[in-house]
């Protein structure tokens, strides 16, 4: 059995990294907002979905105008990523301004329910617009970066099978890595990043330092939503077909990844996302084999979430969550 698991391991890792990178960036949005407001922003999965639709819509429009044919594909992608992330960034900021800020002093549960409401609103809005424009709410964008690349992993270790991936995998992974590294740098090394961490730790005292707390919270929503929207574009390119409900389950999993890594912890969210993606792909490839056919690949989520429960049983604060000793 071990040999068979090893056969597929290179492919599992490649697919797991692509999915995990997507989980990781969406997880960042959850963890940043949670870190600063202690709010589980359920609408964040929908921001991701909205990004996927906006990106696909732009791509379809550009194709219709005949621009895609003349433009280098990478340039088109960059353009779509930038426009989409700016738009979703502002949508996220707007949601905070309209739906969450008035409830800042209300019990957390009220805001949570509002977030679920916003989530439904975005789903239906996107569904409505897409149906009006296309007659169907399931959308398939123009295919890009679909050439397959073979990786001769069998020559590395004879027990491995060869693996392959679509070119889009590289795009997903590189863009995701750039976004994560940039965000990490921004949060840890810049003045506004430090202000974000300060507001997360002590809002009142941050204000006494001259920090406009509302501006910082707006910034957090902008960044999280911009990254989430861009990830939606990556998802659409990697997996082709999208519908208004992709944000729900993916958002749930990304939130899980954030908890797995330690909610509120940026690097934890990145790690948790990658881990969850790889676990899921591993289960998808090997569950049938490991359970003698009792559980099929469709139980991959059960497997991934069982791992989550195990981790949290032994480390409730998550893998990177730290219980900081604070002296008074």
């Amino acid at each position: 059995m071990l040999a068979e698991i090893l056969h597929t391991l290179p492919q599992v890792l490649i697919d797991g990294l692509a999915l995990g990178a997507i989980y990781a960036i969406v997880a960042l949005g959850y963890t940043m907002v949670y870190g600063i407001l202690e709010l589980i922003n359920f609408a964040h999965g929908e921001i991701f979905m909205t990004g996927a639709f906006i990106g696909t819509a732009i791509l379809i429009t550009l194709t219709g105008l005949g621009w895609i044919a003349v433009m280098p594909a990478l340039l088109a992608l960059l353009l779509v990523l930038v426009i989409t992330s700016v738009l979703t960034g502002f949508i996220g900021m707007g949601i905070e301004r309209i739906a969450y800020r008035p409830l800042r002093k209300a019990p957390k549960l009220i805001t949570l329910i509002t977030a679920i409401g916003v989530s439904f609103l975005l789903q239906d809005l996107v569904r409505f617009i897409t149906e009006v424009k296309r007659g169907n709410y399931i959308l398939t964008g123009p295919s890009m970066f679909t050439d397959r690349v073979e990786v001769k992993t069998s020559s590395v270790l004879s027990v491995f099978n060869d693996a392959s991936f679509k070119e889009s995998f590289i795009i997903v992974f590189v863009v995701a890595a750039i976004m994560m590294i940039t965000l990490d740098f921004f949060i840890n090394k810049t003045k506004w990043g430090t202000a974000m961490r300060a507001v997360a730790q002590d809002r009142d005292t941050s204000a006494l330092m001259g920090v406009n707390v509302n501006k910082v919270i707006g910034l957090v929503f902008f960044l999280g939503s911009a990254l989430g929207g861009a990830t939606g574009v990556l998802f659409a390119i990697q997996y082709g077909t999208i519908d208004p409900y992709i944000g729900f389950i993916l958002g749930l999993k990304a939130f899980t990844a954030a908890v797995l890594g330690g909610i509120g912890n940026i690097r934890g969210a990145m790690f948790g996302g990658i881990l969850l993606g790889v676990l899921e792909m591993f289960a998808s490839a090997n569950l049938t084999l490991m359970t003698n056919g009792v559980f099929g690949a469709e139980y991959k989520d059960v497997f991934a979430f069982a791992i989550l429960i195990l981790v949290l049983l032994f480390k409730p604060e998550g893998i990177f969550g730290k219980v900081v000793m604070e002296k008074v």
């Binding site: 003045k191 430090t194 961490r197 300060a198 730790q201 002590d202 941050s206 330092m209 900081v324 008074v328």
Partner: peptide
Amino acid sequence: GRRIFPRLTVKENLEMGAFS
């Protein structure tokens, strides 16, 4: 109660004081 930012470094705490 001082309200130091517990998870910022001492240097970052000082920098926050000079935020503006």
